[in-house]
Lab assay of single mutants.
Amino acid sequence: TEEYTYTDKEKADRAAKEWANRGYTVTVTQDGPTYRVRVG
């Protein structure tokens, strides 16, 4: 499991979509002003 942190919702959504397109399980959680994209 890897985790990426973004401050921009659009970038987080785009990253999540790209990982999902590659067949990974993706979870996006909002943590205050940041968005965490957990992959795998």
Rank of each mutant, 00 (worst) to 15 (best):
G23T: 01
K11P: 05
D8F: 05
R38P: 00
R38G: 05
A20Q: 13
E10S: 10
A15S: 06
T5L: 13
Y6S: 02
V26M: 01
E3L: 09
P33D: 15
K11N: 10
R36G: 02
V28S: 03
D31L: 08
V26G: 00
R14W: 11
E18F: 15
V26T: 05
T7G: 08
D31T: 07
D31P: 01
G32K: 01
K17T: 10
N21T: 10
A15Q: 05
R38V: 14
A16L: 04
K9A: 08
T34I: 15
K17V: 09
G40F: 15
P33V: 09
V28C: 07
W19C: 06
R38D: 04
D31H: 09
Q30H: 08
Y35W: 15
E10V: 10
V28I: 12
D31W: 07
G40N: 13
T25D: 08
A16M: 06
T7M: 11
V26L: 02
E18P: 00
K11G: 09
P33M: 11
V39W: 04
R22S: 06
D13E: 14
Y4T: 04
E2W: 15
K11S: 15
R14M: 11
V39N: 01
E10L: 09
T27V: 11
E3I: 13
K17A: 13
D13A: 10
N21I: 11
A15T: 06
K11F: 08
A20T: 11
T1D: 10
T34M: 13
T29S: 09
G23H: 03
Y6N: 01
T27A: 07
G23V: 01
R38W: 09
T34P: 12
P33A: 12
V28W: 04
V37D: 00
T34E: 07
K11Y: 08
R22H: 07
Y6V: 02
Q30M: 10
K17Q: 13
A12L: 03
T29D: 07
K9W: 13
A12K: 01
E2V: 15
T7W: 13
T5H: 09
Y24F: 12
G32H: 03
T5Q: 08
T1Y: 15
Y4F: 12
G23F: 03
Y6D: 01
P33F: 12
E10W: 12
D8Y: 05
A16H: 03
G32N: 02
K17H: 09
Y24S: 02
Q30Y: 07
A15F: 08
D13G: 06
G40Q: 15
D8P: 01
Y4D: 03
T7A: 10
K11M: 14
V26I: 05
V26W: 02
Y4E: 05
V39E: 01
T5Y: 13
